[in-house]
Amino acid sequence: MSSLGIKDLLGIKGLSRKQIYLVLDTAAGFKDVLKRDIKKVPALRGKTVFNLFFEPSTRTRTSFELAAKRLSTDVINFSVPTSSFVKGESLLDTIRTIESYGVDYIVIRHSSSGVPHFIARHSHASVVNAGDGINEHPTQALLDAFTIKEKKGYFEGLKIAIVGDILHSRVAKSNIYCLRELGAELRIVAPPTFVPHGIDSFGVEVYFDADKGLKDVDVIMMLRIQNERQEGGFLPSSDEYSRFWGLTEERLARASQGAVVMHPGPMNRGVEIMSEVADSTSSVILEQVTNGVAVRMAVLYLLNRTRVTKHV
């Protein structure tokens, strides 16, 4: 099998364990390619990838761009600054315009949940969700799973804690779907204001107390705390967050021997994660970045490329 059997990657929701493993296994092959002197394969030569980013992003966009280039595609980056005050053209008009260019892939990031689904309905191109609102960020979850598999070798029964603003985190959501499907034991560690409604139905254990939540876990995934959360009344201050939920060396010591620390970046050093931890041997944060390219290559490679090129 060399295809996921789907046109778009809109989320992890709905992916089977088999499909996830296919991405991870394919990514392993691409990771080998990335270690070579010449890091490029002709797998998707002649295809066009359109990076459509409605939210500022350096890492994800760069990672997708590199992945696409390593597969020999032509890449176009298109960033639309969105602000509620600047009302540009409608999303549908933007999509129709891109559709008219005849692109094969649209990689989309948008602050509004469901936008990738909307684009998939209105475009022939394969749509890859690079983060939509507070919904999903599937390639991040896949690269996290890839990293865990490399470090730990298995998922079944592995104890993983996700720490931080689960409510607003698409990274957390995709990771929950992905790691649950792979059989890991998941914990959510967060203040109650960051715990989404109905989380009990997602098969995770919720801990408000970080010291308890991190006890004996094999993997710690930290999430970025956004400063503006104070204004929404979610947190009194980042100092207080740091004191109760920040990952210090002492808290890390409560985890199991050889536990790994992950972070999707960019980090707020001194807030959710202390430098001593981020730069320690437990940290696999930079490896996540490396793996991101391989995993995104795998995703682009494995989506159904059924688009019929329009003859002009």
Binding site: K13, S113, G114, D132, G133, I134, N135, E136, R170, K173, P196, H197, G198, I199, S201, F202, G232
Partner: peptide, 19 residues
């Protein structure tokens, strides 16, 4: 209501829409 756009609950969390 804040920035909510649908009923708050399991489904809003599943869809990533504010409840």
């Amino acid at each position: 209501t804040a920035c909510g756009v649908m009923n708050e609950g399991y489904l809003s969390t599943l869809l990533g829409l504010k409840g």
